[in-house]
Design a protein around this nucleic acid. Structure first.
Length: 259
DNA sequence: ATGGTAGCCTTGCTA
């Protein structure tokens, strides 16, 4: 079995004690992080390597920043999403480990709509769709995990009406997410869990966590070769209740060993 | 109509 976690940590520096404690207890084979909010040189590589992880880090000052951690070496590391050499935002890293092609994804938020932020989101999703198609052709087990900043359906948000005008729920955003599924990718959590209103993010404001006013925006998309091996996909709510918590909580996906 | 929270290393931007 191989376990893969995805967690938007909302600053690796501010979150380091929480992150290290969770890695020690949950001990995923692979961890995909988003929103490091710092450059590579400030990534706490030694502390994380001390827990037995190899790291591939793409950092950025103040914003974005993503990493892949693995208990096995990371090979053929690709920094950045293909398709736009002028894009300097650190939102994508891909590598091979545990016999899987794995990506950590921090998809643009896109708010407010009707601005260049939203068109950037849609263009980024088009690039992701193009690259995901290429990955499918390789017929490898592919795992695309991260903060997609997409509420796939109304059942994935506490108040759909409140988010009707939000970039995370726009028809254009949802259509591009569905296009990934229509290519042949499986959304791991929804494939195994029928229950609506289970969330991976709760805003810091307005007592959202205490009132379970959340969103499910952190997802795992699996190629058919990975979906064949899907054993479980669960949201670990515990880290969200800690002091100095990220506003996101980890999602953990488990794949059976290759036949 | 507005502000509420958190992190950056700014006195605003992003989420």
């Amino acid at each position: 079995m191989t376990s893969i976690a995805s967690w938007n940590v909302n600053s690796i520096k501010a979150r380091l004690p929480n992150v290290l404690a969770w890695l020690e207890s949950a001990s995923p084979d692979i961890a995909l992080f988003q929103e490091l909010k710092t450059v590579e040189d400030n990534f706490p590589r030694l502390e994380i390597e001390a827990l037995g992880y190899h790291c591939a880090v793409l950092g950025q000052k103040s914003y974005n920043g993503v990493a892949i951690l693995s208990k096995q070496p990371l090979e053929d590391v690709m920094m950045g999403l293909p398709g736009d050499p002028a894009d300097e935002q650190a939102r994508y890293v891909e590598a091979t480990t545990f016999g899987l092609r794995v990506a950590t994804i921090y998809l643009p938020n896109g708010n407010p709509v009707k601005t260049e932020k939203f068109s950037y989101k849609l263009a980024w999703m088009d690039r992701l769709n193009d690259h995901a198609y290429d990955l499918l052709q390789s017929e490898q087990p592919v795992v695309l995990g991260g903060d997609y900043n997409i509420i796939p359906q109304d059942e994935d948000v506490y108040d759909p009406r409140a988010f009707a005008g939000d970039a995370l729920a726009q028809p254009e955003s949802r259509q591009r997410f569905r296009a990934l599924l229509n290519q042949g990718y499986t959304e791991a959590f929804r494939a195994l869990n029928d229950a609506p209103h289970l969330y991976s993010f709760w805003d810091y404001q307005g007592g959202a966590w205490q009132n379970d006013h959340g969103l499910r925006i952190d997802h795992f998309l699996l190629s058919p070769q990975a979906a064949d091996r899907l054993e479980s996909c669960e949201i670990d709510r515990e880290p969200r209740g800690k002091t100095k918590a990220s506003d996101h909580t980890p999602v953990v996906c488990r794949l059976r060993d290759a036949a």
